[in-house]
C-alpha cells in the first residue's frame, strides 16, 4: 500500500493541480492582501514623483515575454494604472525582442483606459539589441540609443522625449524582468554608475535573487510575482487579474505543500519497513 502511494501515478498529481487552479476561479472567496514594504516603496515613489510640477516621468523596461506574462502583466497594468491616474508620464522599452508587441499592447490598452495621448503622456520605443550595452548607452545618450519610437516618429520631436538627454532626466526607472537582460543588467551597467531611483518587477521564483540589491540601496523597491502585483492592485484600490489569481495560487500552493509532506511521510514509513525487512 505504502509502496503504491510512494509511486503514485503522476496523472493523479496533475489532476489535483488542475482542480486546485480551476475550482478557485469558479468559487470566489476573499483573501487578506497586505502590501509589503518593498511594494509600498514603489507605490510611494510614484506618488512622490506625481507631485512634481511637470508630472514626472517613468521609464518602464519590459524585459520579459509571453512565457511569464501571467505573472508580470498584472503588475505592469497596475503600475501603469497608478502612473496614469496620477498623470505621471511613462516611456516604455524592451530588452527582449519577443516582448515588443505584448508591451505595446499593454501600454496602448492602459493609455486608452485613462485617455492618455501617445507622444505626450506616453511613448513606446520598442526593442534594440545589446541589453547591458543598450542600458549603458541610453543612460549617456538617450536620443542616440533610440532615434525613433515604434511608430517611426523621431524621438527628438516627440513632446515627451525631446528633452530627455540622459537617464538622469527620468525620475524613476523600473525593469519588469523575467531573467537575463533585465534587473541585474540594469543595476550592473546603468544604476550603479548613474545612481538613480530604480525598482524591479520580477517573477516570484527570481524575487529572492534581488534581496541583496534592496539592502544595498541599488534597488529601492520590488514587486515580486503575482502576489506583489495583487498587493499593488490593493494599494491603488483597483482589483484586477492579480487579486483574482491569488485564490488559485493559494490553493495550488497548499496542494503542493500537501504533496510534499505526504511524499515525506510515505518516504519515512517506507524506510522504516525496509529497515524492519533488513533486520528480519
Amino acid at each position: 500500500m505504502i509502496q503504491k502511494l510512494f509511486n503514485i501515478d503522476r496523472r493523479i498529481i496533475f489532476a489535483f493541480i488542475f482542480l486546485s487552479v480551476l475550482l478557485p476561479f469558479l468559487v470566489k472567496f476573499d483573501l487578506p492582501i497586505e502590501a509589503d514594504k518593498n511594494v509600498r516603496t514603489v507605490y510611494n515613489k510614484i506618488e512622490e514623483i506625481s507631485q512634481k510640477a511637470s508630472g514626472g516621468i517613468i521609464l518602464m523596461s519590459f524585459d520579459y515575454d509571453n512565457s511569464t506574462k501571467a505573472e508580470l502583466e498584472p503588475a505592469a497594468r497596475a503600475i501603469l494604472s497608478h502612473a496614469f491616474m496620477k498623470n505621471v508620464k511613462v516611456i516604455g522599452m524592451s530588452n527582449w525582442p519577443n516582448g515588443v508587441t505584448m508591451a505595446k499592447t499593454i501600454m496602448e490598452d492602459m493609455a486608452k483606459e485613462y485617455g492618455k495621448q501617445n507622444g505626450v503622456d506616453w511613448a513606446y520605443l520598442g526593442y534594440k539589441s545589446g541589453a547591458g550595452l543598450l542600458m549603458l548607452n541610453l543612460s549617456m545618450d538617450f536620443h542616440g540609443a533610440f532615434p525613433t519610437d515604434t511608430r517611426g516618429e523621431k524621438i527628438d520631436q516627440i513632446p515627451l522625449t525631446k528633452n530627455i538627454r540622459t537617464i538622469k532626466d527620468i525620475d524613476y526607472v523600473m525593469s519588469l524582468s523575467a531573467g537575463s537582460g533585465g534587473i541585474e543588467e540594469w543595476i550592473i551597467y546603468s544604476q550603479s554608475k548613474y545612481n538613480y531611483a530604480f525598482a524591479g518587477v520580477c517573477t516570484a521564483v527570481s524575487a529572492p535573487d534581488y534581496f541583496p540589491f534592496l539592502q544595498s540601496g541599488q534597488m529601492h523597491g520590488l514587486v515580486g510575482g503575482l502576489a506583489g502585483a495583487a498587493q499593488y492592485e490593493t494599494l491603488i484600490n483597483k482589483p484586477g487579474t492579480a487579486i483574482d489569481g491569488m485564490r488559485p495560487q493559494s490553493v495550488a500552493h497548499l496542494v503542493l505543500i500537501f504533496f510534499i509532506i505526504f511524499g515525506n511521510i510515505c518516504y519515512f514509513v517506507n524506510k522504516k519497513f525496509d529497515m524492519k525487512k533488513e533486520r528480519a
Binding site: 512565457s67 519577443n98 504533496f259
Partner: peptide
C-alpha cells in the same frame, strides 16, 4: 509560448512529490 510555460506547474508538482 504561454502553453509551454503553464505546463511547468504540473511537472514541478510531480517532481516536488518525488
Amino acid at each position: 509560448q504561454e502553453t509551454m510555460f503553464s505546463i511547468l506547474a504540473f511537472f514541478i508538482a510531480s517532481a516536488a512529490y518525488r
